[in-house]
């Protein structure tokens, strides 16, 4: 039993890692294509049909690029930083259920569409991202460069600030679902997706999630106009690609959690399409929102960003939490 569990988990992990890396590669193409269309350009269209082989070309280029590293860097931390970032990004996907439990029948074993279905659920994601902050911070610290240091400071301060709002915006969902387990949360949305009663919480989560992944319009850490490239200024070649990978995988994960927690996960209307396709469709729709925002909105000023996080999002999520709790208890008392 235990060996079987280990083997199954290893296979699932390999599939998830492969899927996330492919997802990352094609997310870069998706972003460039969509952004180009929004700006009336054709976008990448030379490598392969419709530019579909562009990610492979990009990867090959980055792989064979000579890596330059700054002198006076902290050698160990300089290598450790991208590793922490990527591992944290990949590990957070372990809790995401792509479809219902026991849906897959593999060689006579019924296994779920997730790596683990733990009791603490989303807290796992919050724990892993809070370790991921170290990757970004150490990158800036070990590079021995002022641009990197400033980018790292901004980035980690931003991530810590918005993690509060991110976590609190999910509490109303936990109240309604009565569980932190993601599979239970999705099953509680069979009739009504939580976005219907909890629309404000959804928007709070989305804003906090975009800030948490350092994406436009909150991409202060890599503000090209003032900081060159932020915390990864001094990284090149494959090591730079690792940070890039972590950022895009984090986008996928924020979208996946939003799908599971607010958009009903693998449940779709009318019973058409099997579960995993609905999941994929919703995640891609949310990723489109990411790209759409990046192509539309200008970057915010740093002090405005912090003010938004601490003075608006945090009190609003707290208020949302209290209102939900009061309404839930009142409704239970009447029923």
């Amino acid at each position: 039993m235990t060996t079987e569990l280990v083997v199954v988990t290893l296979i699932k992990t390999a599939i998830v890692v492969f899927g996330l890396l492919t997802g990352f590669a094609y997310l870069t193409l998706f972003e460039r294509k969509v952004q180009a269309r929004l700006q009336q350009r054709p976008g990448p269209n030379r490598v392969g049909p419709f530019g579909l082989l562009q990610p492979a070309a990009d990867g090959l280029k980055l792989f064979f690029k000579s890596s330059s590293a700054p002198s006076g860097r902290d050698r160990f931390l300089y290598l450790l930083a991208p590793t922490i970032s990527v591992i944290a990004a990949l590990a957070s996907f372990a809790i995401i259920p792509v479809s219902g439990p026991g849906d897959v029948n593999l060689f006579g074993h019924h296994i779920g569409w997730y790596i683990m279905n733990v009791n603490i659920g989303v807290l796992w994601y919050l724990a892993v991202t809070s370790v991921g902050v170290f990757g970004i911070f150490l990158a800036g610290y070990s590079s021995n460069s002022k641009y990197s240091m400033l980018g790292a400071l901004r980035s980690s301060a931003q991530m810590i600030s918005y993690e509060m709002a991110l976590g609190l915006s999910l509490v109303p969902v936990f109240i309604l679902a009565g569980s932190l387990r993601l599979v239970d949360i999705v099953n509680a949305q069979r009739t009504w997706w939580f976005i219907v009663p909890l629309l404000p919480a959804f928007f709070l989560y989305l804003i906090a999630g975009i800030a948490e992944t350092n994406r436009a319009p909150f991409d202060l850490p890599e503000a090209e106009t003032e900081l060159v490239a932020g915390y990864h200024t001094e990284y090149s070649g494959m090591r730079f690609a690792l940070f890039f990978m972590a950022e895009y995988i984090n986008m996928i994960i924020v979208s996946s959690i939003a799908t599971i927690v607010f958009l009903g996960g693998w449940w779709g209307p009318f019973g058409i399409l099997p579960g995993p396709w609905w999941f994929l469709l919703k995640v891609v729709a949310l990723l489109y929102v990411y790209v759409w925002l990046r192509a539309t909105l200008p970057r915010m000023r740093y002090d405005r960003l912090m003010a938004l996080g601490w003075k608006s999002l945090l009190p609003l999520s707290l208020a949302m939490m209290m209102v939900t709790a009061v309404v839930y208890v009142a409704a239970q008392g009447r029923a």
Partner: peptide, 24 residues
């Protein structure tokens, strides 16, 4: 499990990031 998450989020995440901030 809950203590695991709390320990990582609060101590390894929040508190130690502040330590590292100050040192840096």
């Amino acid at each position: 499990q809950f203590l695991f998450a709390a320990q990582v989020i609060v101590y390894a995440g929040a508190v130690m990031v502040l330590f590292v901030f100050i040192i840096a």
